[in-house]
Design a protein around this nucleic acid. Structure first.
Length: 461
RNA sequence: GGUCCCUUCGUCUAUCGGUUAGGACGCCAGAUUUUCAAUCUGGAGAGAGGGGUUCGACUCCCCUAGGGACUGCCA
């Protein structure tokens, strides 16, 4: 019987697109909550009203929905909790864990330079001041211990020790009365009952500072797990030039959500030699204890490989729905043919973009002009031969793959040439130059009448 | 600059003091072949460097180097 239910959360700030690293952090939180039968929550960290945008908020929810990571409760919008945050700050003030500071920005800046030169944290003269409070705006700062050390117990990195002399009296409440990130995070995680804080390791030093806030409030600390960031293929911080950093772009590039989940799960976490696994397996196996402590680089080739696997597994009708928007001028009448063709060619596709290309041959118009390569193949001799093949095809009633395979083989034998002598031209004539599967399958795809029509079009003088 | 984190094949990782250091992606070669793929088989490929501890270190400790994060009245 566990003492408490596991509660995890993803807490993105809506100041841009949804970063793939955020997606992976969300995945880990989701997996961990599911593994231990707990709850996975989402909180939008929008305390910075200046930088938060509705578009970014939408991107977060769209990204989460696409990834299939559903939160167990309604999302919490941090900015709506400002009153509660101020109340928490008041409580800290009363407990003596915080103080008001009237330093001006200029004074602060000067202090920062000195502190940096002396290798210590910024200090405020108001911390122990007995001066009468000026009638001016002030900020509220945490009264952090100046001696000793604070140790952050981190599940993935172990104990991380910070000298308190290096930790500053961070601002809890801005001079306009708005709460800051560190305060809001602690108050919200506490109120939401978050038991495990799993987040990017760019927050480790915040972890130490937040521990101090928890202590000042007399609250229990959550379990911290700081996971390494995802880097670009070159090891540098993931940025635009690496191809993509927003989850929306992964969808656009034709990756399936389940493939992205599988790939992301393997980035910084592993379960023995398992590479391809289901969501159920991931849930059954996942533990933050097994998260790797070093940063991982994005590997597009591996993502593509995993995606290929999931495209093969995917239902053809679903794939059709996914690629139809990518098919320019697609006619709904062709849907059944499209689905059939997908089944034929999807083994060769690593992304939905590739699938769309592989399927293109079947969607060309009967009288669409031939591509240059096919036209070049169609010498008089080949045209004559294809004409004879057309006659042979017209005479058969068994329009099945095995029958047509045999027919083609027999035809080649009768013509005393290899299939290579006319196969490419035949394929090009049927699919107008787009890559098409084996000859018999391609013929079956079009059906007898259509195939013959295309051949007639190709061999006409 | 300061603080903190990280370092096994090119990449993602396994190993949790004793292994011919395993797997996957990619790469190379071969097979297959009517295009492009796919598929199959085989191969090359790693413990950053230096000190310790130990009978024995990839594994534990220290130093160096390299990479990263933080150092905001941003989150």
């Amino acid at each position: 019987m566990s003492a408490q239910t596991v509660v995890t959360r993803i807490a993105p700030s809506p100041t841009g697109y949804m970063h793939i690293g955020t997606a992976r952090t969300a995945l880990f939180n989701y997996l961990y909550a599911r593994r231990f039968g707990g709850k996975f929550l989402i909180r939008v960290e929008d305390t910075d009203r200046e930088r938060s945008t509705q578009g970014a908020v939408d991107a977060i929810f769209e990204g989460m929905a696409w990834l299939g990571l559903a939160a167990d409760e309604e999302p919490v919008f941090q900015h709506t909790r400002a009153d509660r945050h101020r109340a928490v700050v008041d409580e800290m003030l009363q407990r003596g864990g915080a103080y008001r500071c009237w330093m001006t920005v200029e004074e602060l800046e000067a202090e920062r330079t000195v502190a940096r030169a002396e290798g210590r944290a910024v200090r405020s003269p108001w911390r122990d001041s007995t001066l009468p409070p000026p009638d001016a705006p002030f900020v509220v700062r945490l009264k952090a211990p100046r001696e000793g050390q604070t140790v952050l117990h981190d599940v993935v990195k172990g104990d991380i020790v910070f000298e308190n002399s290096q930790l500053d009296d961070l601002i809890l409440l801005r001079s306009d009365g708005a709460p800051t990130y560190n305060l809001a995070v602690v108050a919200d995680d506490h109120d939401m009952g978050v038991t495990h804080v799993i987040r990017g390791d760019d927050h480790v030093s915040n972890g130490a500072r937040q521990s101090l806030i928890y202590q000042a409030l007399g609250w229990d600390l959550p379990v911290f797990a700081h996971i390494p960031l995802i880097h670009g293929p070159d090891g540098a911080k993931l940025s635009k030039r690496h191809g993509a950093q927003a989850v929306g772009e992964f969808a656009e590039m034709g990756y399936l959500p389940e493939a992205t989940r599988n790939y992301l799960a393997r980035l910084g976490w592993g379960h023995g030699d398992d590479e391809l696994f289901s969501d159920e397996q991931a849930i059954a196996w996942f533990d933050i204890k097994d998260v790797v402590s070093s940063p991982a680089r994005l590997d597009w080739d591996k993502l593509a490989h995993i995606n290929r696997h999931y495209i093969r597994l995917a239902d053809d009708r679903r794939l059709a729905d996914l690629i139809i928007p990518r098919l320019l001028g697609f006619d709904a009448l062709q849907t059944s043919r499209l689905i059939a063709v997908i089944g034929l060619v999807k083994d060769g596709a690593a992304t939905l973009v590739e699938l769309a290309n592989l399927v293109a041959f079947a969607l060309t118009a009967t009288d669409a002009p031939l591509d240059a390569k096919t036209a070049g193949l169609l010498t008089d001799e080949t045209k004559a031969r294809l004409g004879r093949l057309r006659d042979t095809l017209a005479a058969t009633d068994d329009w099945s793959v095995p029958a047509l395979e045999a027919l083609i083989r027999d035809f080649a034998a009768a013509e005393q040439v290899g299939i290579g002598k006319f196969g490419p031209a035949l394929r090009g004539s049927l699919g107008k130059g787009s890559p098409a599967p084996d000859l018999a399958s391609t013929l079956v795809t079009f059906g007898k009448d259509e195939a013959l029509a295309r051949l007639a079009f190709a061999v006409k003088p």
